[in-house]
């Protein structure tokens, strides 16, 4: 706005700048520094060079296990959740009565799902004599050992996150509803079937939203903490011991701040690399309206 000092806007963003420096910028740099130190909170941080990272990559079998569990978790949960969210959004995107009712019913778990109360519920549902096994027995099946068997435990946490597909679905649905209807009519006139229409018209047009959901869900999945902490407590045999749990234990139980910082930087690096790959590859598959390239 003319006439005002050119610094006036800075006053409005000042709280953000202060917060950015204090609670993001400084901690970001500090944690990188700490990852090269040995720091137990009692004496001051002691520089150890790359020793933390060497230990992580050569001698730490817990890290090895935890990293593998984390990657398995992320690479199963995120695609399953997104495919399911998109599928339901497509089913909902039709002139149906009661669309708002279903949208709400599916969205409620996303609102509540992060809550400890839901994690507690999950822990009961999948208990030995819990709801899931009662249903299985009632249907004539054999009860499953959900938490005792390393092959099953991670699945219960994956299921909890898929159950919260609602927020991704609402974003997909908004995108689907903004697709120009005349494109569908044109496709119908040309004799395109439903699958062809979806594959060649709908899917390309909603790639920006797929990209957005993919990034957000991935970043979030790498930081999953509440689920494994409450439901499985990382077990059995560390089969649900995701990296955020390991970082928490190292930092706030063993008070090994330097080592915990090193693990968090490895986790950060993985997320960064994957995000950069996604951004870089998006030029090839994400369609932006008005973009002449595709």
């Amino acid at each position: 706005m003319g006439g005002d000092s050119k610094y006036l806007g800075l006053w409005y963003v000042a709280p953000y700048v202060l917060g950015l420096l204090l609670f993001t910028g400084f901690p970001f740099v500090a944690s990188f520094y700490l990852s090269f130190t040995d720091y137990d909170l009692l004496s001051s941080p002691e520089w150890v060079g790359t020793a933390n990272y060497e230990k992580l990559f050569t001698r730490d079998r817990t890290f090895d296990k935890s990293l593998r569990v984390t990657l398995t978790y992320v690479f199963t949960t995120v695609p399953l959740k997104l495919v399911f969210a998109l599928f339901i959004a497509v089913v909902l995107n039709y002139r149906l009565k009661g669309i708002n009712f279903f949208r709400t019913a599916y969205y409620v778990p996303s609102i509540l799902g992060g809550s400890i109360a839901i994690a507690v519920l999950w822990r009961y549902i999948f208990a030995d004599t819990g709801l899931m096994n009662m249903i299985i027995t009632m249907l004539g099946g054999e009860p499953i050992n959900w938490f005792g068997d390393p092959d099953n435990a991670l699945f219960t946490i994956t299921l909890l996150r898929i159950w919260q597909f609602g927020s991704a679905m609402v974003i997909f649905l908004a995108a689907l509803q903004s697709v120009d209807k005349s494109l569908y009519e044109a496709a119908a006139i040309d004799g395109a079937g439903p699958w062809q229409t979806f594959r060649n018209i709908t899917l390309p047009l909603i790639t920006p939203v797929i990209f957005f959901n993919l990034i957000m869900q991935t970043v979030q999945a790498f930081q999953e903490f509440n689920g494994p902490y409450i439901i499985t407590e990382g077990g059995p045999l560390k089969s649900t011991y995701l990296l955020p749990l390991y970082i928490y234990d190292e930092a706030f139980k063993s008070f090994d701040m330097g080592y915990a910082s090193a693990i968090s930087w490895v986790l950060f690096a993985i997320i960064m690399v994957l995000t950069l790959i996604a951004f870089w590859s998006s030029k090839k598959w994400v369609y932006y309206a008005g973009d002449k390239r595709s």
Binding site: T24, F28, S31, I247, S264
Partner: peptide, 10 residues
């Protein structure tokens, strides 16, 4: 996009 996990300890 920054994971909180990197800034939590400091």
């Amino acid at each position: 996009l920054l994971p909180n996990v990197v800034t939590r300890i400091p």
